[in-house]
Amino acid sequence: MTGAPALPELTALTITVAVAGVFLICFMRGAFGGGFAIIGILLLSTVMDPVTAGGLLAPLLVVIDLFALRYYKPSTWSKPDLVLLLPGLVVGIGLGYLLFRFLDHRAISIVMAVITLAFVGLWFAGGGKVRSRARSSPKAVGAGFASGITTMVAHSGGPPLAMYLLPLGLTKEVYAGTTSLFFTVGNATKALPWLLLARPAGSEWVLMVICVAAVPAGVGLGWRFQGRLDQHQLYRACYGLLVVVGVKLLWDGVAGYLN
Results as ranks from 00 to 15, higher is better:
Leu10Phe: 15
Thr11Met: 06
Thr11Asp: 01
Thr16Gly: 15
Thr16Glu: 12
Thr16Val: 12
Val17Asp: 07
Leu24Gln: 02
Ile25Ala: 03
Met28Tyr: 07
Arg29Pro: 05
Phe32Trp: 01
Ile38His: 01
Asp49Ser: 14
Pro50Glu: 09
Val51Ile: 12
Val51Trp: 11
Ala53Cys: 10
Gly54Asn: 01
Gly55Asp: 07
Leu56Trp: 04
Leu56Met: 13
Pro59Gln: 11
Val62Ala: 02
Val62Met: 06
Leu66Lys: 06
Ala68Asp: 00
Lys73Leu: 05
Pro74Arg: 06
Thr76Gln: 09
Ser78Lys: 02
Leu86Ala: 10
Pro87Phe: 12
Pro87Ala: 05
Gly92Arg: 07
Gly94Trp: 15
Gly94Val: 11
Phe100Ser: 04
Asp104His: 13
Ile110Asp: 00
Ile110Cys: 08
Met112Thr: 15
Ala118Arg: 13
Gly121Ile: 04
Leu122Ile: 15
Leu122Phe: 08
Leu122Gln: 13
Ala125Ile: 02
Gly128His: 05
Ser132Tyr: 08
Arg133Trp: 13
Ala134Arg: 12
Ser136Pro: 10
Ser137Ile: 15
Pro138Ile: 09
Pro138Ser: 04
Lys139Ala: 15
Ala140Glu: 15
Gly142Leu: 11
Gly142Asp: 04
Gly144Glu: 02
Phe145Pro: 05
Gly148Lys: 03
Gly148Pro: 02
Thr151Tyr: 04
Met152Tyr: 11
Ser156Leu: 15
Gly157Phe: 02
Gly157Met: 00
Pro159Glu: 00
Pro160Ile: 05
Leu161Glu: 01
Pro167Gln: 14
Leu168Asn: 11
Leu168Ile: 13
Thr171Glu: 14
Lys172Gly: 03
Glu173Ile: 03
Phe182Val: 09
Val185Thr: 04
Pro193Cys: 03
Leu196Ser: 03
Leu197Thr: 12
Pro200Met: 10
Ala201Val: 10
Gly202Gln: 07
Gly202Phe: 12
Val206Gly: 08
Val206Ser: 00
Cys211Pro: 13
Ala214Pro: 01
Gly218Ser: 02
Gly218Thr: 06
Val219Gly: 00
Val219Cys: 01
Leu221Phe: 13
Gly222Asp: 14
Trp223Ile: 05
Phe225Tyr: 11
Leu229Asn: 01
Asp230Met: 01
Asp230Ser: 08
Asp230Glu: 11
Leu234Asp: 00
Leu234Cys: 04
Arg236Ser: 03
Tyr239Gly: 00
Gly240Thr: 07
Val245Pro: 11
Gly246Pro: 09
Gly246Leu: 09
Leu249Met: 05
Gly253Met: 10
Ala255Asn: 10
Ala255Thr: 12
Leu258Tyr: 15
Asn259Ala: 14
Asn259His: 14
